[in-house]
Design a binder for these strands. Structure first.
Lengths: 251, 251
DNA sequence: CGTGGTCTAAAGGTCTGACCCAATCTAACA
DNA sequence: TGTTAGATTGGGTCAGACCTTTAGACCACG
Protein backbone atom coordinates (compact mmCIF):
# COMPACT_ATOMS: atom_id res chain seq x y z
CA UNK A 1 0.00 0.00 0.00
CA UNK A 2 1.56 3.28 -1.09
CA UNK A 3 2.34 5.70 1.65
CA UNK A 4 0.02 8.44 0.53
CA UNK A 5 -3.14 6.37 0.90
CA UNK A 6 -2.90 5.51 4.54
CA UNK A 7 -5.13 8.37 5.55
CA UNK A 8 -8.06 10.04 3.88
CA UNK A 9 -6.88 13.46 5.00
CA UNK A 10 -5.78 15.62 2.06
CA UNK A 11 -4.09 18.94 2.35
CA UNK A 12 -3.22 21.51 -0.26
CA UNK A 13 0.27 22.96 -0.44
CA UNK A 14 0.65 25.47 2.32
CA UNK A 15 2.59 28.68 2.54
CA UNK A 16 4.77 29.25 5.52
CA UNK A 17 5.34 32.97 5.68
CA UNK A 18 8.52 34.21 7.23
CA UNK A 19 8.30 35.72 10.67
CA UNK A 20 9.59 39.06 9.47
CA UNK A 21 6.96 39.16 6.74
CA UNK A 22 4.22 38.47 9.21
CA UNK A 23 5.30 41.36 11.37
CA UNK A 24 5.79 43.62 8.36
CA UNK A 25 2.32 42.83 7.06
CA UNK A 26 0.79 43.44 10.44
CA UNK A 27 2.46 46.80 10.82
CA UNK A 28 1.68 47.73 7.22
CA UNK A 29 -2.01 47.13 7.68
CA UNK A 30 -1.98 49.28 10.77
CA UNK A 31 -0.23 52.07 8.95
CA UNK A 32 -2.31 51.93 5.79
CA UNK A 33 -5.54 51.87 7.72
CA UNK A 34 -4.71 55.42 8.58
CA UNK A 35 -5.07 55.03 12.31
CA UNK A 36 -1.65 56.51 12.92
CA UNK A 37 -1.17 60.02 11.56
CA UNK A 38 2.02 60.82 9.76
CA UNK A 39 4.96 61.07 12.10
CA UNK A 40 3.63 58.75 14.77
CA UNK A 41 6.57 56.92 16.30
CA UNK A 42 6.54 53.13 16.31
CA UNK A 43 7.80 51.49 19.48
CA UNK A 44 11.59 51.14 19.67
CA UNK A 45 13.03 47.94 18.30
CA UNK A 46 13.75 46.48 21.70
CA UNK A 47 10.24 47.21 22.79
CA UNK A 48 8.86 45.49 19.71
CA UNK A 49 11.02 42.53 20.62
CA UNK A 50 9.35 42.08 23.98
CA UNK A 51 5.90 42.76 22.57
CA UNK A 52 6.16 40.31 19.70
CA UNK A 53 8.52 37.81 21.34
CA UNK A 54 10.53 37.82 18.15
CA UNK A 55 14.25 38.38 17.98
CA UNK A 56 15.65 41.76 17.22
CA UNK A 57 16.94 40.50 13.88
CA UNK A 58 13.42 39.64 12.81
CA UNK A 59 12.00 42.91 14.04
CA UNK A 60 14.68 44.82 12.20
CA UNK A 61 14.04 42.95 8.97
CA UNK A 62 10.38 43.82 9.19
CA UNK A 63 11.21 47.46 9.75
CA UNK A 64 13.63 47.39 6.85
CA UNK A 65 10.89 46.09 4.58
CA UNK A 66 8.54 48.89 5.55
CA UNK A 67 11.30 51.42 5.16
CA UNK A 68 12.03 50.31 1.61
CA UNK A 69 8.34 50.49 0.83
CA UNK A 70 8.33 54.05 2.03
CA UNK A 71 5.92 53.43 4.88
CA UNK A 72 8.26 54.41 7.68
CA UNK A 73 11.29 56.59 8.05
CA UNK A 74 14.01 55.51 10.46
CA UNK A 75 16.17 57.93 12.39
CA UNK A 76 19.15 56.93 14.48
CA UNK A 77 20.17 58.36 17.79
CA UNK A 78 18.32 59.39 20.86
CA UNK A 79 14.69 60.30 20.17
CA UNK A 80 15.16 58.34 16.98
CA UNK A 81 13.22 55.32 15.86
CA UNK A 82 10.71 54.45 13.20
CA UNK A 83 8.13 57.05 12.28
CA UNK A 84 5.03 56.50 10.23
CA UNK A 85 5.23 58.00 6.79
CA UNK A 86 2.60 57.94 4.13
CA UNK A 87 3.94 56.64 0.86
CA UNK A 88 4.66 59.48 -1.49
CA UNK A 89 5.20 60.07 -5.14
CA UNK A 90 8.89 59.31 -4.88
CA UNK A 91 8.32 55.70 -3.99
CA UNK A 92 6.29 55.22 -7.15
CA UNK A 93 8.89 57.15 -9.07
CA UNK A 94 11.74 55.01 -7.82
CA UNK A 95 10.00 51.76 -8.58
CA UNK A 96 9.17 52.94 -12.07
CA UNK A 97 12.77 53.94 -12.44
CA UNK A 98 13.87 50.44 -11.52
CA UNK A 99 11.49 49.03 -14.10
CA UNK A 100 12.80 51.32 -16.80
CA UNK A 101 16.44 50.80 -16.02
CA UNK A 102 16.22 47.12 -15.23
CA UNK A 103 14.25 46.15 -18.27
CA UNK A 104 16.27 48.46 -20.45
CA UNK A 105 12.99 49.68 -21.69
CA UNK A 106 12.93 51.28 -25.09
CA UNK A 107 13.00 55.02 -24.83
CA UNK A 108 10.03 54.89 -27.16
CA UNK A 109 7.94 53.34 -24.41
CA UNK A 110 8.79 56.16 -22.06
CA UNK A 111 7.81 58.70 -24.64
CA UNK A 112 4.62 56.85 -25.44
CA UNK A 113 3.70 56.95 -21.81
CA UNK A 114 4.45 60.63 -21.60
CA UNK A 115 2.26 61.29 -24.59
CA UNK A 116 -0.49 59.43 -22.84
CA UNK A 117 -0.14 61.20 -19.54
CA UNK A 118 0.93 64.76 -20.05
CA UNK A 119 -2.03 66.02 -22.04
CA UNK A 120 -4.31 64.73 -19.32
CA UNK A 121 -2.14 66.41 -16.72
CA UNK A 122 -2.55 69.64 -18.63
CA UNK A 123 -6.30 69.24 -18.77
CA UNK A 124 -6.63 68.58 -15.07
CA UNK A 125 -4.23 71.40 -14.31
CA UNK A 126 -6.40 73.77 -16.29
CA UNK A 127 -9.37 72.61 -14.28
CA UNK A 128 -7.89 72.44 -10.80
CA UNK A 129 -4.97 74.84 -10.72
CA UNK A 130 -4.58 77.23 -7.83
CA UNK A 131 -2.83 80.56 -8.07
CA UNK A 132 0.08 79.02 -6.23
CA UNK A 133 0.39 76.45 -9.00
CA UNK A 134 0.47 79.24 -11.55
CA UNK A 135 3.30 80.98 -9.75
CA UNK A 136 5.33 77.80 -9.74
CA UNK A 137 4.65 77.17 -13.40
CA UNK A 138 5.72 80.62 -14.43
CA UNK A 139 8.83 80.70 -12.31
CA UNK A 140 9.81 77.30 -13.65
CA UNK A 141 9.37 78.58 -17.13
CA UNK A 142 11.46 81.63 -16.39
CA UNK A 143 14.19 79.39 -15.03
CA UNK A 144 14.24 77.41 -18.25
CA UNK A 145 14.63 80.52 -20.36
CA UNK A 146 17.46 81.75 -18.16
CA UNK A 147 19.32 78.48 -17.84
CA UNK A 148 22.86 78.22 -19.06
CA UNK A 149 24.35 74.86 -19.81
CA UNK A 150 22.49 71.83 -21.07
CA UNK A 151 22.29 70.13 -17.73
CA UNK A 152 20.66 73.11 -16.11
CA UNK A 153 18.24 73.41 -18.99
CA UNK A 154 17.18 69.79 -18.71
CA UNK A 155 16.74 70.05 -14.97
CA UNK A 156 14.54 73.10 -15.23
CA UNK A 157 12.65 71.52 -18.07
CA UNK A 158 11.83 68.55 -15.90
CA UNK A 159 10.76 70.89 -13.12
CA UNK A 160 8.22 72.57 -15.34
CA UNK A 161 6.69 69.33 -16.50
CA UNK A 162 6.45 68.08 -12.94
CA UNK A 163 4.90 71.40 -11.97
CA UNK A 164 2.17 70.84 -14.50
CA UNK A 165 1.53 67.43 -13.03
CA UNK A 166 1.46 68.88 -9.54
CA UNK A 167 -1.05 71.50 -10.66
CA UNK A 168 -3.35 68.69 -11.73
CA UNK A 169 -3.70 67.83 -8.03
CA UNK A 170 -3.68 64.18 -8.93
CA UNK A 171 -1.09 62.36 -6.89
CA UNK A 172 -0.98 59.31 -9.09
CA UNK A 173 -0.27 61.23 -12.24
CA UNK A 174 2.25 63.33 -10.37
CA UNK A 175 4.12 60.27 -9.21
CA UNK A 176 4.21 58.79 -12.67
CA UNK A 177 5.38 62.03 -14.23
CA UNK A 178 8.17 62.38 -11.71
CA UNK A 179 9.41 58.94 -12.61
CA UNK A 180 9.18 59.45 -16.36
CA UNK A 181 10.90 62.80 -16.12
CA UNK A 182 13.77 61.38 -14.19
CA UNK A 183 14.12 58.57 -16.68
CA UNK A 184 14.17 60.94 -19.60
CA UNK A 185 16.52 63.26 -17.82
CA UNK A 186 19.08 60.58 -17.19
CA UNK A 187 18.87 59.12 -20.67
CA UNK A 188 18.83 62.31 -22.67
CA UNK A 189 21.79 64.18 -21.31
CA UNK A 190 24.35 62.49 -23.46
CA UNK A 191 22.76 63.66 -26.66
CA UNK A 192 23.64 66.94 -28.17
CA UNK A 193 20.42 67.45 -30.02
CA UNK A 194 19.31 70.26 -27.80
CA UNK A 195 20.51 73.38 -29.47
CA UNK A 196 19.42 76.96 -28.98
CA UNK A 197 16.61 76.62 -31.46
CA UNK A 198 15.10 73.58 -29.79
CA UNK A 199 15.29 75.30 -26.45
CA UNK A 200 13.57 78.34 -27.77
CA UNK A 201 10.75 76.28 -29.22
CA UNK A 202 10.34 74.48 -25.91
CA UNK A 203 10.13 77.71 -23.97
CA UNK A 204 7.47 79.04 -26.27
CA UNK A 205 5.47 75.85 -26.13
CA UNK A 206 5.61 75.89 -22.36
CA UNK A 207 4.44 79.45 -22.29
CA UNK A 208 1.43 78.72 -24.44
CA UNK A 209 0.48 75.71 -22.33
CA UNK A 210 0.89 77.76 -19.19
CA UNK A 211 -1.35 80.41 -20.62
CA UNK A 212 -4.06 77.89 -21.37
CA UNK A 213 -3.83 76.57 -17.83
CA UNK A 214 -4.00 80.08 -16.49
CA UNK A 215 -7.12 80.82 -18.49
CA UNK A 216 -8.62 77.49 -17.44
CA UNK A 217 -8.92 76.53 -21.09
CA UNK A 218 -8.76 72.77 -20.72
CA UNK A 219 -9.09 71.92 -24.37
CA UNK A 220 -6.33 74.25 -25.46
CA UNK A 221 -4.10 72.97 -22.69
CA UNK A 222 -4.59 69.41 -23.87
CA UNK A 223 -4.01 70.28 -27.49
CA UNK A 224 -0.89 72.33 -26.95
CA UNK A 225 0.65 69.93 -24.50
CA UNK A 226 -0.02 67.01 -26.82
CA UNK A 227 1.66 68.80 -29.68
CA UNK A 228 4.63 69.82 -27.56
CA UNK A 229 5.26 66.38 -26.12
CA UNK A 230 4.75 64.70 -29.43
CA UNK A 231 7.22 66.85 -31.29
CA UNK A 232 9.75 66.53 -28.50
CA UNK A 233 9.39 62.76 -28.52
CA UNK A 234 9.69 62.60 -32.29
CA UNK A 235 12.85 64.67 -32.21
CA UNK A 236 14.39 62.61 -29.44
CA UNK A 237 13.58 59.35 -31.17
CA UNK A 238 14.98 60.57 -34.42
CA UNK A 239 18.27 61.31 -32.71
CA UNK A 240 18.06 57.89 -31.09
CA UNK A 241 17.74 56.25 -34.47
CA UNK A 242 20.69 58.16 -35.75
CA UNK A 243 22.94 57.34 -32.81
CA UNK A 244 22.03 53.76 -32.00
CA UNK A 245 22.40 50.87 -34.32
CA UNK A 246 19.56 48.62 -33.34
CA UNK A 247 16.07 49.56 -34.32
CA UNK A 248 13.72 47.33 -32.33
CA UNK A 249 10.74 46.29 -34.34
CA UNK A 250 7.30 45.46 -33.05
CA UNK A 251 5.12 42.46 -33.79
CA UNK B 1 28.23 89.81 15.10
CA UNK B 2 25.67 87.06 14.56
CA UNK B 3 26.80 83.58 15.20
CA UNK B 4 26.56 82.20 11.71
CA UNK B 5 28.82 84.76 10.08
CA UNK B 6 32.13 84.08 11.73
CA UNK B 7 33.28 81.81 9.01
CA UNK B 8 32.75 81.94 5.31
CA UNK B 9 32.80 78.18 5.08
CA UNK B 10 29.42 76.72 4.23
CA UNK B 11 28.57 73.07 4.25
CA UNK B 12 25.46 71.28 3.23
CA UNK B 13 24.01 68.53 5.39
CA UNK B 14 25.93 65.39 4.76
CA UNK B 15 24.75 61.83 4.41
CA UNK B 16 26.49 58.95 6.07
CA UNK B 17 25.25 55.87 4.30
CA UNK B 18 24.68 52.71 6.27
CA UNK B 19 26.80 49.70 5.51
CA UNK B 20 23.83 47.69 4.31
CA UNK B 21 22.83 50.48 1.94
CA UNK B 22 26.30 50.61 0.50
CA UNK B 23 26.22 46.93 -0.26
CA UNK B 24 22.66 47.11 -1.58
CA UNK B 25 23.55 49.97 -3.91
CA UNK B 26 26.59 48.15 -5.14
CA UNK B 27 24.66 45.01 -5.91
CA UNK B 28 21.79 46.98 -7.42
CA UNK B 29 24.07 48.73 -9.87
CA UNK B 30 25.54 45.42 -10.91
CA UNK B 31 22.09 43.97 -11.46
CA UNK B 32 20.63 46.96 -13.27
CA UNK B 33 23.60 47.24 -15.56
CA UNK B 34 22.35 44.01 -17.04
CA UNK B 35 25.60 42.14 -16.68
CA UNK B 36 23.86 39.28 -14.91
CA UNK B 37 21.07 37.68 -16.88
CA UNK B 38 17.87 36.86 -15.12
CA UNK B 39 18.26 33.92 -12.78
CA UNK B 40 21.94 34.33 -12.11
CA UNK B 41 22.60 33.25 -8.54
CA UNK B 42 24.31 35.67 -6.20
CA UNK B 43 26.91 34.19 -3.89
CA UNK B 44 25.52 32.62 -0.71
CA UNK B 45 25.21 34.93 2.26
CA UNK B 46 28.17 33.46 4.06
CA UNK B 47 30.26 33.85 0.97
CA UNK B 48 29.28 37.52 0.67
CA UNK B 49 30.33 37.88 4.29
CA UNK B 50 33.89 36.82 3.58
CA UNK B 51 34.02 38.80 0.34
CA UNK B 52 32.75 42.05 1.80
CA UNK B 53 34.06 41.60 5.33
CA UNK B 54 30.70 42.67 6.60
CA UNK B 55 28.67 40.72 9.11
CA UNK B 56 25.96 38.41 8.03
CA UNK B 57 23.34 40.72 9.53
CA UNK B 58 24.46 43.50 7.25
CA UNK B 59 24.59 41.28 4.21
CA UNK B 60 21.13 40.00 4.93
CA UNK B 61 19.72 43.50 5.30
CA UNK B 62 21.16 44.43 1.94
CA UNK B 63 19.60 41.37 0.36
CA UNK B 64 16.29 42.15 2.01
CA UNK B 65 16.34 45.61 0.48
CA UNK B 66 16.91 44.23 -2.99
CA UNK B 67 14.25 41.62 -2.47
CA UNK B 68 11.65 44.23 -1.55
CA UNK B 69 12.63 46.23 -4.60
CA UNK B 70 12.00 43.18 -6.71
CA UNK B 71 15.56 42.88 -7.93
CA UNK B 72 16.26 39.46 -6.46
CA UNK B 73 14.23 36.47 -5.47
CA UNK B 74 15.34 34.42 -2.48
CA UNK B 75 14.83 30.70 -2.16
CA UNK B 76 15.55 28.63 0.92
CA UNK B 77 17.08 25.23 1.09
CA UNK B 78 19.96 23.59 -0.66
CA UNK B 79 20.55 25.05 -4.12
CA UNK B 80 18.67 28.06 -2.80
CA UNK B 81 19.99 31.54 -2.45
CA UNK B 82 19.44 34.89 -4.09
CA UNK B 83 18.73 34.96 -7.80
CA UNK B 84 18.76 37.99 -10.03
CA UNK B 85 15.34 39.06 -11.16
CA UNK B 86 14.43 41.93 -13.39
CA UNK B 87 11.88 44.21 -11.84
CA UNK B 88 8.47 43.57 -13.30
CA UNK B 89 5.15 45.27 -13.58
CA UNK B 90 4.02 43.97 -10.23
CA UNK B 91 6.56 45.98 -8.33
CA UNK B 92 5.25 49.15 -9.90
CA UNK B 93 1.74 47.99 -9.28
CA UNK B 94 2.35 47.30 -5.63
CA UNK B 95 4.00 50.62 -5.00
CA UNK B 96 1.15 52.42 -6.69
CA UNK B 97 -1.20 50.40 -4.59
CA UNK B 98 0.56 51.59 -1.46
CA UNK B 99 0.25 55.16 -2.64
CA UNK B 100 -3.44 54.82 -3.32
CA UNK B 101 -4.26 53.03 -0.11
CA UNK B 102 -1.92 54.98 2.12
CA UNK B 103 -2.95 58.38 0.93
CA UNK B 104 -6.58 57.38 0.85
CA UNK B 105 -6.60 58.86 -2.56
CA UNK B 106 -9.92 59.97 -3.88
CA UNK B 107 -11.41 57.41 -6.18
CA UNK B 108 -11.82 60.29 -8.60
CA UNK B 109 -8.05 60.47 -8.99
CA UNK B 110 -7.87 56.83 -9.88
CA UNK B 111 -10.55 57.26 -12.49
CA UNK B 112 -8.90 60.38 -13.86
CA UNK B 113 -5.74 58.42 -14.29
CA UNK B 114 -7.55 55.61 -16.00
CA UNK B 115 -9.14 58.04 -18.38
CA UNK B 116 -5.71 59.36 -19.17
CA UNK B 117 -4.13 56.00 -19.74
CA UNK B 118 -6.59 53.57 -21.17
CA UNK B 119 -7.34 55.31 -24.44
CA UNK B 120 -3.63 55.44 -25.14
CA UNK B 121 -3.35 51.78 -24.28
CA UNK B 122 -6.07 51.09 -26.79
CA UNK B 123 -4.30 53.10 -29.46
CA UNK B 124 -1.01 51.33 -28.95
CA UNK B 125 -2.77 48.00 -28.78
CA UNK B 126 -4.35 48.68 -32.14
CA UNK B 127 -0.93 49.49 -33.52
CA UNK B 128 1.14 46.75 -31.95
CA UNK B 129 -1.18 43.86 -31.19
CA UNK B 130 -0.21 40.34 -32.11
CA UNK B 131 -2.66 37.59 -32.88
CA UNK B 132 -1.89 36.13 -29.47
CA UNK B 133 -3.02 39.38 -27.89
CA UNK B 134 -6.27 39.15 -29.82
CA UNK B 135 -6.96 35.67 -28.55
CA UNK B 136 -6.44 36.79 -25.00
CA UNK B 137 -8.68 39.79 -25.46
CA UNK B 138 -11.49 37.78 -26.90
CA UNK B 139 -11.32 35.02 -24.34
CA UNK B 140 -11.26 37.60 -21.57
CA UNK B 141 -14.34 39.17 -23.03
CA UNK B 142 -16.08 35.83 -23.26
CA UNK B 143 -15.26 35.21 -19.62
CA UNK B 144 -16.88 38.48 -18.65
CA UNK B 145 -20.07 37.66 -20.48
CA UNK B 146 -20.22 34.25 -18.86
CA UNK B 147 -19.34 35.31 -15.34
CA UNK B 148 -21.79 34.68 -12.56
CA UNK B 149 -21.54 36.64 -9.35
CA UNK B 150 -20.32 40.19 -9.01
CA UNK B 151 -16.87 39.24 -7.79
CA UNK B 152 -16.24 37.03 -10.78
CA UNK B 153 -17.46 39.73 -13.11
CA UNK B 154 -15.15 42.33 -11.62
CA UNK B 155 -12.19 40.01 -11.78
CA UNK B 156 -12.76 39.20 -15.42
CA UNK B 157 -13.39 42.83 -16.17
CA UNK B 158 -10.00 43.70 -14.74
CA UNK B 159 -8.44 40.93 -16.77
CA UNK B 160 -9.75 42.38 -19.99
CA UNK B 161 -8.48 45.86 -19.26
CA UNK B 162 -5.08 44.51 -18.33
CA UNK B 163 -5.10 42.46 -21.52
CA UNK B 164 -5.56 45.65 -23.51
CA UNK B 165 -2.61 47.18 -21.73
CA UNK B 166 -0.54 44.08 -22.37
CA UNK B 167 -1.43 44.23 -26.04
CA UNK B 168 0.03 47.73 -26.16
CA UNK B 169 3.43 46.10 -25.57
CA UNK B 170 4.35 48.99 -23.34
CA UNK B 171 5.57 47.71 -20.01
CA UNK B 172 5.17 50.99 -18.20
CA UNK B 173 1.57 51.44 -19.17
CA UNK B 174 0.94 47.81 -18.37
CA UNK B 175 2.33 48.19 -14.88
CA UNK B 176 0.28 51.28 -14.22
CA UNK B 177 -2.88 49.68 -15.50
CA UNK B 178 -2.35 46.63 -13.32
CA UNK B 179 -2.10 48.84 -10.29
CA UNK B 180 -5.10 50.96 -11.14
CA UNK B 181 -7.20 47.92 -11.90
CA UNK B 182 -6.36 46.34 -8.61
CA UNK B 183 -7.19 49.54 -6.80
CA UNK B 184 -10.53 49.86 -8.51
CA UNK B 185 -11.26 46.22 -7.98
CA UNK B 186 -10.74 46.43 -4.26
CA UNK B 187 -12.66 49.64 -3.81
CA UNK B 188 -15.61 48.90 -6.04
CA UNK B 189 -16.78 45.56 -4.80
CA UNK B 190 -18.83 46.87 -1.94
CA UNK B 191 -21.08 48.86 -4.21
CA UNK B 192 -24.14 47.32 -5.72
CA UNK B 193 -24.30 49.58 -8.72
CA UNK B 194 -23.35 46.87 -11.13
CA UNK B 195 -26.58 45.36 -12.30
CA UNK B 196 -27.29 43.24 -15.31
CA UNK B 197 -27.78 46.24 -17.54
CA UNK B 198 -24.45 47.81 -16.65
CA UNK B 199 -22.72 44.53 -17.24
CA UNK B 200 -24.32 44.17 -20.61
CA UNK B 201 -23.23 47.64 -21.63
CA UNK B 202 -19.69 46.89 -20.52
CA UNK B 203 -19.54 43.70 -22.51
CA UNK B 204 -20.71 45.47 -25.64
CA UNK B 205 -18.26 48.31 -25.18
CA UNK B 206 -15.43 45.83 -24.74
CA UNK B 207 -16.44 44.04 -27.87
CA UNK B 208 -16.41 47.20 -29.93
CA UNK B 209 -13.01 48.19 -28.60
CA UNK B 210 -11.69 44.73 -29.25
CA UNK B 211 -12.97 44.92 -32.80
CA UNK B 212 -11.18 48.21 -33.38
CA UNK B 213 -7.96 46.72 -32.04
CA UNK B 214 -8.42 43.70 -34.25
CA UNK B 215 -8.88 45.88 -37.32
CA UNK B 216 -5.92 48.01 -36.29
CA UNK B 217 -8.17 51.04 -36.28
CA UNK B 218 -6.27 53.16 -33.76
CA UNK B 219 -8.57 56.15 -33.82
CA UNK B 220 -11.69 54.12 -33.25
CA UNK B 221 -9.99 52.21 -30.45
CA UNK B 222 -9.09 55.44 -28.71
CA UNK B 223 -12.54 56.90 -29.14
CA UNK B 224 -14.44 53.88 -27.96
CA UNK B 225 -12.20 53.19 -25.04
CA UNK B 226 -12.38 56.80 -23.95
CA UNK B 227 -16.14 56.74 -24.04
CA UNK B 228 -16.33 53.44 -22.19
CA UNK B 229 -13.96 54.44 -19.41
CA UNK B 230 -15.54 57.84 -19.05
CA UNK B 231 -19.05 56.53 -18.66
CA UNK B 232 -17.91 53.87 -16.25
CA UNK B 233 -16.08 56.45 -14.17
CA UNK B 234 -19.03 58.78 -14.18
CA UNK B 235 -21.34 56.02 -13.03
CA UNK B 236 -18.96 54.92 -10.29
CA UNK B 237 -18.49 58.44 -9.03
CA UNK B 238 -22.18 59.11 -8.99
CA UNK B 239 -22.66 56.11 -6.74
CA UNK B 240 -19.77 57.36 -4.64
CA UNK B 241 -21.49 60.67 -4.13
CA UNK B 242 -24.67 58.96 -3.14
CA UNK B 243 -23.06 56.63 -0.62
CA UNK B 244 -20.39 58.76 0.99
CA UNK B 245 -21.04 61.86 2.96
CA UNK B 246 -17.97 63.94 2.33
CA UNK B 247 -17.49 65.52 -1.04
CA UNK B 248 -13.89 66.72 -1.26
CA UNK B 249 -13.65 69.98 -3.07
CA UNK B 250 -10.81 71.19 -5.22
CA UNK B 251 -9.05 74.54 -5.20
C1' DC C 1 27.15 85.75 28.03
C1' DG C 2 28.21 82.22 24.95
C1' DT C 3 31.29 78.91 23.50
C1' DG C 4 32.88 74.65 23.82
C1' DG C 5 33.71 70.30 26.49
C1' DT C 6 31.84 66.45 28.85
C1' DC C 7 28.62 63.22 30.32
C1' DT C 8 24.60 60.35 30.08
C1' DA C 9 20.72 58.02 28.25
C1' DA C 10 18.24 56.30 24.39
C1' DA C 11 18.02 54.62 20.16
C1' DG C 12 19.48 52.44 15.90
C1' DG C 13 23.68 49.89 13.54
C1' DT C 14 26.88 46.15 13.48
C1' DC C 15 29.04 41.98 14.82
C1' DT C 16 29.50 37.03 16.55
C1' DG C 17 28.30 32.60 16.92
C1' DA C 18 25.10 29.37 17.48
C1' DC C 19 21.15 26.75 16.22
C1' DC C 20 16.85 25.66 13.50
C1' DC C 21 14.42 24.58 9.28
C1' DA C 22 14.05 23.51 4.21
C1' DA C 23 15.44 21.65 -0.04
C1' DT C 24 18.22 18.74 -2.44
C1' DC C 25 21.48 15.15 -3.38
C1' DT C 26 23.24 10.60 -2.53
C1' DA C 27 24.00 6.29 -1.26
C1' DA C 28 22.56 2.37 1.11
C1' DC C 29 18.99 -0.80 1.60
C1' DA C 30 14.79 -3.66 0.93
C1' DT D 1 14.63 -0.67 -8.85
C1' DG D 2 12.40 2.09 -6.08
C1' DT D 3 12.49 4.02 -1.36
C1' DT D 4 14.19 6.02 2.15
C1' DA D 5 17.54 7.65 5.61
C1' DG D 6 21.28 10.50 6.07
C1' DA D 7 24.42 14.30 4.62
C1' DT D 8 24.99 18.73 2.75
C1' DT D 9 24.10 23.28 1.63
C1' DG D 10 21.56 26.89 1.91
C1' DG D 11 18.45 30.56 4.18
C1' DG D 12 15.80 31.88 8.81
C1' DT D 13 15.94 32.85 13.62
C1' DC D 14 17.76 33.69 17.99
C1' DA D 15 20.47 35.72 21.95
C1' DG D 16 23.69 38.82 23.40
C1' DA D 17 27.29 41.98 23.12
C1' DC D 18 29.31 46.14 21.56
C1' DC D 19 29.66 50.46 18.54
C1' DT D 20 27.85 54.86 16.77
C1' DT D 21 24.77 58.57 16.59
C1' DT D 22 21.81 61.95 18.62
C1' DA D 23 19.48 64.87 22.17
C1' DG D 24 19.74 66.95 26.23
C1' DA D 25 21.79 68.65 30.40
C1' DC D 26 25.34 70.42 32.79
C1' DC D 27 29.56 72.73 33.58
C1' DA D 28 33.66 75.44 33.13
C1' DC D 29 36.21 78.83 31.26
C1' DG D 30 37.19 83.02 28.72
Amino acid sequence: MPTGDRSAIRLSPMEVPKASDVLANELREHILSGVYPEGTPLPPERELVVQTRMSRTTVREALRILEVQGLIRIKAGRAGGAFVQRPGEESVASSLELLIRGRQIRLASVHETREAIEPSCARLAAQHRTTGDLVRLESANAAIAASGDLDEFLGNNVDWHVAVATASHNEILTGIMMALSRAIYTTTDNEGFINAEVRDIAVRAHRSVTRAIKERDADAAVRRMARHVHSYAAAALEVEDRTTVSVPEED
